[in-house]
Each structure stands twice: as structure tokens, then as C-alpha cells.
Amino acid sequence: MAALINVPAKAKRGDVIEIRTLTSHIMETGFRHTMDGALVPRDIITSFTCRFNGTEIFRADLFPAIAANPYLSFFTVAKESGKFEFEWIGDNGYSSTASASIAVE
């Protein structure tokens, strides 16, 4: 699935940087019914993880009240150059990944 990641390409050592992520997902709550009364089964992202050079630096649990195409932003301190890896996990075996690199000087 399409994802949009905003990580600064370059940063100074010790800088606080903002990371913004947006991914496409319908986030079906599981509380809605169709016109003929059948329950629409829940289909949401349940977990988001960000790893930097293999170490987990941020994790979030997601719930049915979160809107479609979840947008998450968080901050971290730039310590060394490396690669951020993002992973979204959800219902029905959903899994999606993305990555972005940063150069720290």
C-alpha cells in the first residue's frame, strides 16, 4: 500500500527531528452495518512500529476510532546516520513497510 514518509534528509548531531508518516488504509471500525443489516467486519491497522538501524524507537497501538489513512508524527534525536524502518500491522494479516534514510553530520 502507498505510504508517505517525511524524514529530513540531513540533520546535525543532537538535533530534535520530526518524523511524519501517512499510510493508506480503510480503517473499517467493525461497528457499521450494510444496507441489509449485516455487520461490516473490522479491518484496521492495530500496530505501528518505527526502528532506527534495527532498534525500536517508537511504537503505537491503533484502535477503531482512528480515521482512515492514519497519519502519525513523532520526534526523535538525530544521533547517527542510518535508516528508519516503518511497519504497519493490522487485521487479516495486513502488513506494510516503508523506509527512509538520514545523514547526520
Binding site: 502507498a2 508517505l4 514518509i5 501517512l22 493508506s24
Partner: peptide, 14 residues
């Protein structure tokens, strides 16, 4: 204004 927070851009990518 920000193409990385505009959810419409997900559709543009698709």
C-alpha cells in the same frame, strides 16, 4: 499544503 500529510497524495501515488 504539505504533500506528505495530504492524504490525497496517497491516491496520486496509486
Amino acid at each position: 499544503d504539505d504533500d506528505t500529510s495530504n492524504p490525497g497524495m496517497l491516491f496520486v501515488l496509486d
